[in-house]
Design a binder for these strands. Structure first.
Lengths: 146, 146
DNA sequence: CCAGTAATATTAGATTATCTAATGATTAGA
DNA sequence: TCTAATCATTAGATAATCTAATATTACTGG
Protein backbone atom coordinates (compact mmCIF):
# COMPACT_ATOMS: atom_id res chain seq x y z
CA UNK A 1 0.00 0.00 0.00
CA UNK A 2 1.27 3.44 -0.84
CA UNK A 3 1.77 5.64 2.22
CA UNK A 4 -0.29 8.77 2.39
CA UNK A 5 2.81 10.96 1.94
CA UNK A 6 3.99 9.33 -1.29
CA UNK A 7 2.81 11.88 -3.80
CA UNK A 8 4.05 14.68 -1.64
CA UNK A 9 7.43 13.00 -1.29
CA UNK A 10 7.76 12.81 -5.06
CA UNK A 11 7.04 16.51 -5.37
CA UNK A 12 9.46 17.46 -2.64
CA UNK A 13 12.19 15.35 -4.22
CA UNK A 14 11.67 17.13 -7.50
CA UNK A 15 11.15 20.71 -6.40
CA UNK A 16 13.46 21.21 -3.43
CA UNK A 17 16.70 20.72 -5.38
CA UNK A 18 15.47 23.17 -8.00
CA UNK A 19 14.73 25.87 -5.47
CA UNK A 20 17.98 25.11 -3.67
CA UNK A 21 19.94 25.68 -6.84
CA UNK A 22 18.28 29.01 -7.32
CA UNK A 23 19.16 30.06 -3.78
CA UNK A 24 22.77 28.98 -4.20
CA UNK A 25 23.20 30.82 -7.47
CA UNK A 26 21.49 33.85 -6.05
CA UNK A 27 23.78 33.98 -2.98
CA UNK A 28 26.93 33.72 -5.01
CA UNK A 29 25.87 36.34 -7.47
CA UNK A 30 26.25 39.26 -5.07
CA UNK A 31 29.70 40.64 -5.68
CA UNK A 32 31.86 41.32 -2.67
CA UNK A 33 29.41 39.55 -0.39
CA UNK A 34 29.82 36.17 -1.95
CA UNK A 35 28.52 34.01 0.83
CA UNK A 36 27.88 30.36 0.15
CA UNK A 37 24.67 28.94 1.54
CA UNK A 38 26.41 27.13 4.42
CA UNK A 39 28.40 30.26 5.21
CA UNK A 40 25.23 32.30 5.24
CA UNK A 41 23.51 29.83 7.50
CA UNK A 42 26.46 29.75 9.86
CA UNK A 43 26.36 33.50 10.21
CA UNK A 44 22.65 33.37 10.93
CA UNK A 45 23.21 30.89 13.73
CA UNK A 46 26.17 32.70 15.22
CA UNK A 47 24.37 36.01 15.18
CA UNK A 48 21.29 34.58 16.78
CA UNK A 49 23.09 32.56 19.43
CA UNK A 50 26.06 34.80 20.12
CA UNK A 51 28.79 32.87 21.84
CA UNK A 52 27.80 29.49 20.46
CA UNK A 53 30.44 26.82 19.99
CA UNK A 54 31.61 24.99 16.96
CA UNK A 55 29.57 21.99 18.04
CA UNK A 56 26.55 24.26 18.22
CA UNK A 57 26.95 25.32 14.61
CA UNK A 58 27.55 21.73 13.55
CA UNK A 59 24.39 20.57 15.30
CA UNK A 60 22.20 23.31 13.86
CA UNK A 61 23.43 22.70 10.34
CA UNK A 62 23.55 18.94 10.56
CA UNK A 63 27.27 18.84 9.85
CA UNK A 64 30.08 16.81 11.34
CA UNK A 65 32.47 18.78 13.57
CA UNK A 66 35.28 18.78 10.99
CA UNK A 67 32.95 20.18 8.35
CA UNK A 68 31.84 22.95 10.66
CA UNK A 69 35.44 23.64 11.56
CA UNK A 70 36.44 24.21 7.95
CA UNK A 71 33.37 26.30 7.33
CA UNK A 72 34.27 28.56 10.25
CA UNK A 73 37.87 28.65 9.01
CA UNK A 74 36.60 30.25 5.84
CA UNK A 75 34.48 32.82 7.65
CA UNK A 76 37.22 33.61 10.16
CA UNK A 77 39.69 34.01 7.31
CA UNK A 78 37.46 36.64 5.83
CA UNK A 79 37.09 38.46 9.11
CA UNK A 80 33.42 37.70 9.56
CA UNK A 81 33.69 35.54 12.65
CA UNK A 82 36.10 35.34 15.58
CA UNK A 83 37.10 32.40 17.72
CA UNK A 84 37.69 33.12 21.39
CA UNK A 85 38.50 31.02 24.39
CA UNK A 86 35.53 29.97 26.43
CA UNK A 87 35.78 30.85 30.06
CA UNK A 88 35.20 27.73 32.09
CA UNK A 89 35.87 25.15 29.38
CA UNK A 90 39.10 25.45 27.56
CA UNK A 91 38.31 22.83 24.96
CA UNK A 92 35.45 24.88 23.73
CA UNK A 93 35.63 27.74 21.27
CA UNK A 94 33.32 30.72 21.53
CA UNK A 95 32.20 32.07 18.20
CA UNK A 96 31.24 35.66 17.63
CA UNK A 97 30.15 37.47 14.53
CA UNK A 98 32.16 40.61 13.71
CA UNK A 99 30.75 43.92 12.59
CA UNK A 100 31.89 43.09 9.11
CA UNK A 101 30.23 39.67 9.29
CA UNK A 102 27.00 41.16 10.53
CA UNK A 103 27.02 43.64 7.70
CA UNK A 104 27.69 40.98 5.09
CA UNK A 105 24.92 38.87 6.55
CA UNK A 106 22.45 41.71 6.49
CA UNK A 107 23.24 42.54 2.88
CA UNK A 108 23.10 38.94 1.74
CA UNK A 109 19.87 38.33 3.59
CA UNK A 110 18.28 41.42 2.12
CA UNK A 111 19.40 40.72 -1.42
CA UNK A 112 18.38 37.07 -1.33
CA UNK A 113 15.01 37.78 0.18
CA UNK A 114 14.41 40.44 -2.36
CA UNK A 115 15.16 38.29 -5.32
CA UNK A 116 13.25 35.33 -3.91
CA UNK A 117 10.41 37.61 -3.07
CA UNK A 118 10.34 39.01 -6.55
CA UNK A 119 9.90 35.55 -8.00
CA UNK A 120 7.32 34.55 -5.43
CA UNK A 121 5.40 37.69 -6.27
CA UNK A 122 4.17 35.82 -9.33
CA UNK A 123 1.92 33.79 -7.06
CA UNK A 124 -1.47 35.04 -6.02
CA UNK A 125 -2.23 35.74 -2.38
CA UNK A 126 -3.78 32.37 -1.71
CA UNK A 127 -0.90 30.44 -3.17
CA UNK A 128 1.58 32.57 -1.33
CA UNK A 129 -0.10 31.88 1.96
CA UNK A 130 -0.21 28.20 1.13
CA UNK A 131 3.49 28.13 0.40
CA UNK A 132 4.31 29.99 3.60
CA UNK A 133 2.30 27.61 5.72
CA UNK A 134 3.70 24.61 3.88
CA UNK A 135 7.19 25.82 4.74
CA UNK A 136 6.27 25.96 8.40
CA UNK A 137 4.96 22.43 8.25
CA UNK A 138 8.15 21.24 6.58
CA UNK A 139 10.26 22.99 9.16
CA UNK A 140 8.42 21.19 11.92
CA UNK A 141 8.90 17.86 10.23
CA UNK A 142 12.50 18.18 9.15
CA UNK A 143 14.28 20.24 11.69
CA UNK A 144 16.62 18.18 13.76
CA UNK A 145 16.61 15.35 11.22
CA UNK A 146 19.33 16.51 8.95
CA UNK B 1 7.34 48.89 1.18
CA UNK B 2 7.80 45.21 1.82
CA UNK B 3 6.81 43.08 -1.17
CA UNK B 4 3.97 40.67 -0.66
CA UNK B 5 6.33 37.69 -0.95
CA UNK B 6 8.74 38.80 1.75
CA UNK B 7 7.62 36.60 4.60
CA UNK B 8 7.37 33.65 2.29
CA UNK B 9 10.87 34.32 1.00
CA UNK B 10 12.26 34.27 4.52
CA UNK B 11 10.63 30.92 5.16
CA UNK B 12 11.86 29.43 1.92
CA UNK B 13 15.38 30.60 2.62
CA UNK B 14 15.31 28.91 5.99
CA UNK B 15 13.50 25.69 5.21
CA UNK B 16 14.69 24.66 1.77
CA UNK B 17 18.35 24.15 2.75
CA UNK B 18 17.24 22.05 5.69
CA UNK B 19 15.10 19.76 3.57
CA UNK B 20 17.81 19.65 0.94
CA UNK B 21 20.32 18.43 3.48
CA UNK B 22 17.96 15.68 4.52
CA UNK B 23 17.52 14.56 0.92
CA UNK B 24 21.26 14.56 0.30
CA UNK B 25 22.02 12.55 3.41
CA UNK B 26 19.21 10.17 2.62
CA UNK B 27 20.45 9.52 -0.93
CA UNK B 28 23.97 8.83 0.16
CA UNK B 29 22.90 6.49 2.91
CA UNK B 30 21.81 3.71 0.58
CA UNK B 31 24.87 1.54 0.22
CA UNK B 32 25.67 0.22 -3.21
CA UNK B 33 23.28 2.67 -4.82
CA UNK B 34 25.08 5.73 -3.56
CA UNK B 35 23.74 8.28 -5.96
CA UNK B 36 24.37 11.92 -5.24
CA UNK B 37 21.45 14.26 -5.77
CA UNK B 38 22.82 15.64 -9.06
CA UNK B 39 23.52 12.11 -10.27
CA UNK B 40 20.02 11.07 -9.36
CA UNK B 41 18.54 14.02 -11.15
CA UNK B 42 20.63 13.38 -14.23
CA UNK B 43 19.38 9.84 -14.42
CA UNK B 44 15.80 11.04 -14.09
CA UNK B 45 16.28 13.39 -17.03
CA UNK B 46 18.08 10.89 -19.21
CA UNK B 47 15.49 8.23 -18.56
CA UNK B 48 12.63 10.56 -19.33
CA UNK B 49 14.16 12.12 -22.43
CA UNK B 50 16.04 9.17 -23.85
CA UNK B 51 18.65 10.33 -26.30
CA UNK B 52 19.09 13.78 -24.81
CA UNK B 53 22.41 15.56 -25.15
CA UNK B 54 24.85 16.85 -22.61
CA UNK B 55 23.53 20.35 -23.17
CA UNK B 56 20.05 19.03 -22.48
CA UNK B 57 21.08 17.72 -19.09
CA UNK B 58 22.93 20.94 -18.31
CA UNK B 59 19.89 23.03 -19.19
CA UNK B 60 17.47 20.94 -17.14
CA UNK B 61 19.72 21.00 -14.10
CA UNK B 62 20.85 24.59 -14.48
CA UNK B 63 24.49 23.58 -14.79
CA UNK B 64 27.26 24.82 -17.02
CA UNK B 65 28.31 22.38 -19.75
CA UNK B 66 31.59 21.45 -18.01
CA UNK B 67 29.74 20.62 -14.80
CA UNK B 68 27.30 18.41 -16.66
CA UNK B 69 30.19 16.78 -18.46
CA UNK B 70 31.90 15.75 -15.24
CA UNK B 71 28.64 14.59 -13.77
CA UNK B 72 28.05 12.33 -16.76
CA UNK B 73 31.67 11.16 -16.55
CA UNK B 74 30.89 9.83 -13.11
CA UNK B 75 27.72 8.06 -14.20
CA UNK B 76 29.35 6.65 -17.33
CA UNK B 77 32.28 5.43 -15.27
CA UNK B 78 29.87 3.47 -13.13
CA UNK B 79 28.10 1.99 -16.15
CA UNK B 80 24.84 3.79 -15.61
CA UNK B 81 24.87 5.94 -18.72
CA UNK B 82 26.35 5.58 -22.19
CA UNK B 83 27.53 8.24 -24.61
CA UNK B 84 26.90 7.59 -28.27
CA UNK B 85 27.44 9.53 -31.45
CA UNK B 86 24.45 11.49 -32.62
CA UNK B 87 23.42 10.80 -36.18
CA UNK B 88 23.21 14.07 -38.00
CA UNK B 89 25.33 16.19 -35.68
CA UNK B 90 28.73 14.90 -34.83
CA UNK B 91 29.43 17.47 -32.18
CA UNK B 92 26.56 16.22 -30.17
CA UNK B 93 26.58 13.30 -27.78
CA UNK B 94 23.53 11.11 -27.30
CA UNK B 95 23.00 9.96 -23.75
CA UNK B 96 21.25 6.78 -22.82
CA UNK B 97 20.55 5.17 -19.49
CA UNK B 98 21.72 1.57 -19.15
CA UNK B 99 19.76 -1.26 -17.58
CA UNK B 100 22.00 -0.94 -14.57
CA UNK B 101 21.41 2.78 -14.41
CA UNK B 102 17.68 2.34 -14.65
CA UNK B 103 17.77 -0.19 -11.86
CA UNK B 104 19.85 2.05 -9.60
CA UNK B 105 17.52 4.93 -10.32
CA UNK B 106 14.44 2.89 -9.50
CA UNK B 107 15.92 1.71 -6.23
CA UNK B 108 17.14 5.13 -5.19
CA UNK B 109 13.83 6.70 -6.09
CA UNK B 110 11.90 4.13 -4.14
CA UNK B 111 14.09 4.34 -1.07
CA UNK B 112 14.16 8.12 -1.00
CA UNK B 113 10.46 8.47 -1.51
CA UNK B 114 9.84 5.96 1.20
CA UNK B 115 11.94 7.71 3.75
CA UNK B 116 10.64 11.14 2.82
CA UNK B 117 7.14 9.79 2.86
CA UNK B 118 7.63 8.31 6.29
CA UNK B 119 8.60 11.71 7.67
CA UNK B 120 5.81 13.51 5.85
CA UNK B 121 3.39 11.00 7.30
CA UNK B 122 3.60 13.02 10.50
CA UNK B 123 1.50 15.70 8.84
CA UNK B 124 -2.25 15.51 8.81
CA UNK B 125 -4.12 15.20 5.54
CA UNK B 126 -4.78 18.89 5.17
CA UNK B 127 -1.18 19.88 5.74
CA UNK B 128 -0.01 17.20 3.37
CA UNK B 129 -2.24 18.47 0.65
CA UNK B 130 -1.10 22.00 1.31
CA UNK B 131 2.53 20.99 1.02
CA UNK B 132 1.90 19.10 -2.19
CA UNK B 133 0.17 22.05 -3.79
CA UNK B 134 2.77 24.45 -2.51
CA UNK B 135 5.43 22.34 -4.24
CA UNK B 136 3.54 22.61 -7.51
CA UNK B 137 3.38 26.35 -7.14
CA UNK B 138 7.09 26.54 -6.44
CA UNK B 139 7.85 24.37 -9.43
CA UNK B 140 5.92 26.72 -11.66
CA UNK B 141 7.76 29.70 -10.29
CA UNK B 142 11.27 28.33 -10.21
CA UNK B 143 11.64 25.98 -13.08
CA UNK B 144 13.82 27.37 -15.76
CA UNK B 145 15.29 29.99 -13.42
CA UNK B 146 18.07 27.98 -11.92
C1' DC C 1 32.41 27.74 -52.06
C1' DC C 2 34.62 29.38 -48.24
C1' DA C 3 35.77 32.28 -44.30
C1' DG C 4 34.28 33.48 -40.19
C1' DT C 5 31.02 32.69 -36.45
C1' DA C 6 28.32 29.80 -33.49
C1' DA C 7 27.43 25.59 -31.10
C1' DT C 8 28.90 21.27 -28.62
C1' DA C 9 31.70 18.86 -25.83
C1' DT C 10 35.69 18.46 -23.43
C1' DT C 11 40.11 19.41 -20.63
C1' DA C 12 42.53 22.07 -17.23
C1' DG C 13 42.67 24.24 -13.00
C1' DA C 14 40.54 26.37 -8.94
C1' DT C 15 37.38 26.62 -4.90
C1' DT C 16 34.22 24.84 -1.63
C1' DA C 17 31.63 21.27 0.89
C1' DT C 18 31.48 17.21 2.70
C1' DC C 19 32.94 12.87 4.75
C1' DT C 20 35.97 9.47 7.84
C1' DA C 21 39.92 8.64 10.60
C1' DA C 22 43.39 10.12 13.59
C1' DT C 23 45.31 13.52 17.03
C1' DG C 24 45.49 16.75 20.92
C1' DA C 25 43.77 18.92 24.68
C1' DT C 26 40.71 19.24 28.58
C1' DT C 27 37.11 17.86 31.52
C1' DA C 28 34.34 14.64 34.20
C1' DG C 29 33.42 10.54 36.74
C1' DA C 30 34.15 5.89 38.99
C1' DT D 1 43.72 9.42 40.25
C1' DC D 2 43.17 7.23 36.05
C1' DT D 3 40.02 6.36 32.57
C1' DA D 4 36.15 7.95 29.76
C1' DA D 5 34.03 11.19 27.24
C1' DT D 6 33.97 15.67 24.90
C1' DC D 7 35.56 19.44 21.88
C1' DA D 8 38.28 21.09 18.32
C1' DT D 9 41.36 20.36 14.89
C1' DT D 10 44.42 18.24 11.17
C1' DA D 11 44.97 15.07 7.39
C1' DG D 12 43.37 13.12 3.38
C1' DA D 13 39.71 11.79 0.17
C1' DT D 14 35.74 12.58 -3.05
C1' DA D 15 32.38 15.26 -5.41
C1' DA D 16 30.16 19.50 -7.22
C1' DT D 17 30.71 23.52 -9.03
C1' DC D 18 32.74 27.45 -11.53
C1' DT D 19 35.69 30.04 -15.43
C1' DA D 20 38.84 29.85 -19.19
C1' DA D 21 40.84 27.58 -22.90
C1' DT D 22 40.69 24.02 -26.65
C1' DA D 23 39.05 20.99 -30.24
C1' DT D 24 35.60 19.68 -33.47
C1' DT D 25 31.72 20.27 -36.26
C1' DA D 26 27.91 22.96 -38.28
C1' DC D 27 25.97 27.10 -40.21
C1' DT D 28 25.85 31.44 -42.98
C1' DG D 29 26.62 35.51 -45.75
C1' DG D 30 29.38 37.16 -49.50
Amino acid sequence: MPGKGDECAREVLDVVPTVMRFIRTEMRSHRALELSVPQFRSLVIIERAEGTSLAGVAAHLGLTPPSACKLIDGLAGRGMVTRKESSGDRRRVTLEITAQGAQALASARKASQKSLSRLLGALDAEELSRVTRAMSALRRVFEGRS
